[in-house]
Design a protein around this nucleic acid. Structure first.
Length: 196
DNA sequence: CCCTGATTCGC
DNA sequence: GCGAATCAGG
């Protein structure tokens, strides 16, 4: 496999979205995570974050990595209420993401009851915000695609076509990714009502 | 042990 | 330029 524009583009996009090298490698296929990391560096897409206190002229004149941190300031959701869309007709995939799949559109009458949504309770705002953020960039796997290493956090209404599982890398020993572990395993202490 | 990115260096 | 091997860390 070679790094044609298409693949490089995918690499850049996913890397920007925060995907890990191994995830990108898996998506691209034909390359290892090492290859991805190597390419990332050659493209100068290295992460910023320079070890603090590492400023000296005796540095190997490599290159100026004055990467402008495109920190995405998207949060501040006083009321993170996941609103699963009911009856999502029409296409919805955005970017080229060839999921060689021609699933039968499960046209199940959009159920409106979805009380079992594990979230939506008294969860620490941070944890909920983190989960919400993750769900925006999740892999959106189907039931069949889940493995022991993918987050099994359900998102949406199971009776709806666009029901999916997070799919992000699980926290070792847990069934969920870090963000969802955060909302799933709320320390008892966290439940105490915080007076405001 | 699972995973992450970073670096080196022969190809 | 490429990426396996290795390193360093969570």
């Amino acid at each position: 496999m070679s790094w044609d524009d298409q693949r490089v583009e995918t690499l850049k996009r996913m890397w920007a979205e925060g995907a890990s090298a191994s995830q990108i490698a898996k998506e691209l296929g034909g390359v290892t995570r090492n290859a991805v990391i190597g390419k990332v560096h050659r493209l100068g897409l290295s992460n910023r974050v320079v070890p603090a206190g590492r400023e000296d002229g005796a540095e190997t004149a490599e290159d100026l990595i004055v990467e402008a941190p495109p920190v995405e300031p998207e949060e501040a959701e006083p009321e993170p209420q996941p609103e699963p869309e009911l009856v999502a007709a029409g296409a919805d995939d955005e970017e080229g993401d060839e999921n060689g799949s021609s699933f039968r559109r499960q046209i199940i009458p959009a159920g409106q009851p979805l009380p079992p949504q594990p979230s939506a309770n008294e969860i620490s705002p941070e944890a909920q915000a983190a989960a919400l953020a993750v769900e925006k960039t999740a892999r959106r796997l189907s039931l069949m695609e889940l493995t022991e290493k993918t987050c099994k956090w359900p998102v949406g209404d199971p009776a709806t076509p666009n029901f999916w599982f997070c799919g992000m890398p699980v926290q070792p020993g847990k069934p969920y990714c870090e963000a969802h572990v955060g909302v799933a395993f709320q320390p008892m202490s966290a439940r105490r009502d915080r007076r405001r």
